[in-house]
Amino acid sequence: MRMPEQVQRLAIVIGVIAAVVLVGRFVLMPPTLVARELHRSSTEQREAAKPVKFAGSSACQDCHDNVVEKKAKGYHKGLACEGCHGPAVKHTEDPSAVTPAAPRDRKFCPVCHAYDAARPTGFPQINPTAHNPLTPCIGCHDAHDPVPPRTPKACAACHAQIERTKAISTHALLACTTCHTVPEAHKKSPRTVRPSKPQTREFCGTCHAKDAGAKEAAAKGTTATDAAAKRAKTARQAPRVDLSTHGETFQCWQCHYPHLPEGRS
């Protein structure tokens, strides 16, 4: 049977379209676009080939061994050189053509050291407007070995958050050393030499028990220390609780944060 002419023409058109699609799919499209594995591995290769900009911690050793050695001994030993100097691969490849900037400005160090309540306790923080203003930080601290020129006197240098909390509390007038015995070495190696912390309910009782003050006064002159004498004096203004019933047998600081004790609100 003879095929009608219009069917033949239609067949030709369909054939042409099919040919175009097949050619496009198998000849013109690169294999990386079609095969899943290939397109993935080509993406991986493209990612892997991207240029590196941070050279890494061991890259500066060869040429700046004096700085590396100095930094390794100081408080900044954990810091990457490029955390302060910026990406330096170009510099390691051609040191004279590209030199990294040195952050000499006073604005830089507070990026890490400005006081911020959200920073972990014990991280050294300062108030940039109050801490030796107008002089660049590096005028007093060596950026690569930033020992404080002398050991700080105030606990607040390192415990700013506690100090600020206590300052607005009813315990504002109590010195830190009323409750903590602090060896001098704590200020130099704070993590190895630890101050004492109150251990018993009776400790808080020295000011807050019904008979507080009396006991201290009785002890005065025999074994009383300066701290105990001071405590006896302040104890006079302290609100009293019955130690045998108040707070049952829990430690006082399980309910009252000692640096911000709230009892009346």
Partner: peptide
């Protein structure tokens, strides 16, 4: 190498 964020983290 370490990722850049790990590289520069001071703590």
């Amino acid at each position: 190498l370490k990722p850049a964020c790990v590289e520069v983290c001071p703590t």
